[in-house]
Design a protein around this nucleic acid. Structure first.
Lengths: 339, 339
DNA sequence: TTTAAAAATGACAGCGCTGTCAATTTTATT
DNA sequence: AATAAAATTGACAGCGCTGTCATTTTTAAA
């Protein structure tokens, strides 16, 4: 029923070792031989047995994804992207949900790494932003690829996929400025998240570039939640220096701000422009639909996983930095000032 | 570094076969021997090598979860539950996102089942509601456990975890009736989903039990989305026979209905009660927070996976039916009529 | 052409476990 | 106490592949 390497070898008229070489893209196989083997592989619908590979070889054919993220949309997007890469490369994915606050998280992960043969891990925030954690993993002799916010890698420990929130935040802010806004409120996410820091930095820099004076009172501390958006918007609209636009650190905050505005009888976007961030499904379910920045999470994750697998195969340098910049998506929650 | 079965055997002073027997809970091992082995296992932190097991044995140590669900919260909950069961039983989880509309879905899954040694699959809607699909899998000689909506299993092909939406919908409706409501609108999800059918059935039955005449005009076709809730609520509030309460088929619809009500200047819950369904994180992010029915998805999924693994070990009957009834959670979006 | 070096291919052991079946020990029976 | 039956334990092959190293073939150099 299921073809083995032996069947392929017989059909191609070569030894199983040669088939093995072809399957692993090793050099030292002549082109005609390689083709003969590939033909047999195709005709038999052969797929190497992962268990046997793991048992016999020293290489690993699995990567792991650990997550601690209350945002299910984010996790699923990431997971789907990683799975896509794994499928293409014939790798397996180990999924490990866990809590970053748990005290024995290190032990837990260490145990997993030691007991499953793992080539490496894809790390997302908050894990990707914990240098000690990353170092610990590297000491365990597994590869690591980090997905994190910023435009400059923090170190050369391991490759980084940088999401340029700074640049994206500038684009959003510039979009608002182009619409004529100068009083722009900012509702932040948790300040421990790099993404918040970077988005705030982008916001500030855009103001500076346009010679708009920064009003610190328009920057509201918050967290990545609907409630935070509600409170933030209320607070902002109570200011003397009332903003005509609000930059929300993510779509949920923006949805909250939108909601609060309705309650206060402020019409969006006529009287107030509101922007989101992330382009989660959320942002299409509000009224009006949110202007936001699209973060191509599945693509990012697939890129990260592909890079990780290349690392595992020693086909990539340790210091690779990739950048993604979320792109502005203009929808219905922003417009010219219009009172 | 990593202990093998050999190390355990040596330390316990038995043969590796005996260790193997202990690890697999096979009979024919004397209690003292079993204990000696278990001690060695613990002291060496031994964990059987899955690759070797897969390669050597005929049993499978993996189950699969295929999903096609736009609701990320649902998927993550299910996945976490399944993973918990796998961890406890030393199984591995293969994750396979896919589209049920894709034409080659059957081939795709068949291929996966044939190439990875899989004991069985956990099926959620819509897959669990496709008898042909289930039969096809069974023909492939893998076990299947279905999670689906209803109070009666449709057949005895494979075990079912029934989520009693009918009963839960009755509870919600009864809650509204107890508050004095008799004109209760219903905004449906997609009618192809069993969950919609079952929830509508529960709604109708509760009305009947309370001798409230059913007004078909108060039943609005919809789908499981925010927009649908917005439109549904608008339509309902335009009726002559304007409802004082709205039963929404899920939390997203309810959020939409809530939103529309705000727009129409209807205050919740004073002038209109609105209920959700599912208790997604969504339902805590609305204002007011939604009265809803809690579906313990992680528990359901863990139960399903545990059952599947028992099946795989021939430790469970084929015709097991488990029932979960989502429980009413009363929050702030429902109250007595009060105009 | 001959010969050495390099490239391509193959033979074979063994990864850590389970299945089979044989050897041993225990228990029950006479 | 002797014997048969049952329960327990172990020896060993082999799952499908990769790593090592030997062998063969090709290519380059003399």
């Amino acid at each position: 029923m299921k073809a083995t390497i032996n069947d392929v070898a017989k059909q191609a008229g070569v030894s199983i070792k040669t088939v093995s070489r072809v399957m692993n893209n090793e050099p030292s196989v002549r082109q005609p031989t390689r083709e003969k083997v590939m033909d047999a592989v195709k005709s038999l619908n052969y797929q190497p047995n992962l268990a046997a590979r793991n048992l016999a070889g020293t290489k690993a054919y699995s990567i792991a994804f650990i997550y601690d993220n209350p945002n299910a949309y984010y996790v699923i997007d990431m997971q789907n992207g990683i799975l896509a890469a794994c499928k293409k490369q014939g790798f397996e994915l180990l999924i490990h949900p866990c809590s970053s606050k748990s005290t024995n998280i290190l032990e837990e992960i260490t145990n997993m790494v030691k007991h499953s043969r793992i080539a490496g891990l894809v790390l997302t925030p908050p894990f990707s932003e914990m240098p000690d954690f990353v170092q610990h993993l590297l000491d365990l002799d597994v590869d690591v690829v980090r997905i994190m916010s910023g435009d400059v890698a923090p170190d050369e420990l391991a490759p980084c996929i940088m999401v340029n929130d700074h640049q994206a935040a500038m684009s959003i802010t510039q979009h608002l400025i182009d619409l004529g806004h100068t009083n722009i409120g900012f509702i932040a996410g948790q300040s421990e998240h790099m993404s918040t820091v970077e988005r705030l930095r982008g916001y500030k820099q855009a103001l500076k570039l346009n010679n708009i004076k920064l009003d610190e009172r328009l920057i509201i501390d918050g967290e990545y939640s609907f409630e935070s958006g509600v409170h933030g918007a209320k607070q902002l609209m109570a200011e003397d220096n009332r903003p005509t636009a609000i930059f929300s650190c993510n779509d949920e905050i923006a949805a909250g701000a939108l909601f609060a505005s309705r309650l206060m009888g402020i019409s969006i976007p006529e009287q107030l422009s509101i922007t989101g961030f992330e382009n989660s499904p959320f942002s299409r379910q509000t009224w009006p639909r949110l202007t936001t920045a699209n973060q191509p999470n599945p693509k990012i994750a697939e890129g990260a996983a592909t890079l990780l697998i290349a690392q595992a195969r020693k086909q990539a340098a340790k210091n690779i930095i990739t950048q993604y910049t979320p792109q502005l998506i203009v929808r219905d929650s922003t417009s010219q000032i219009n009172e």
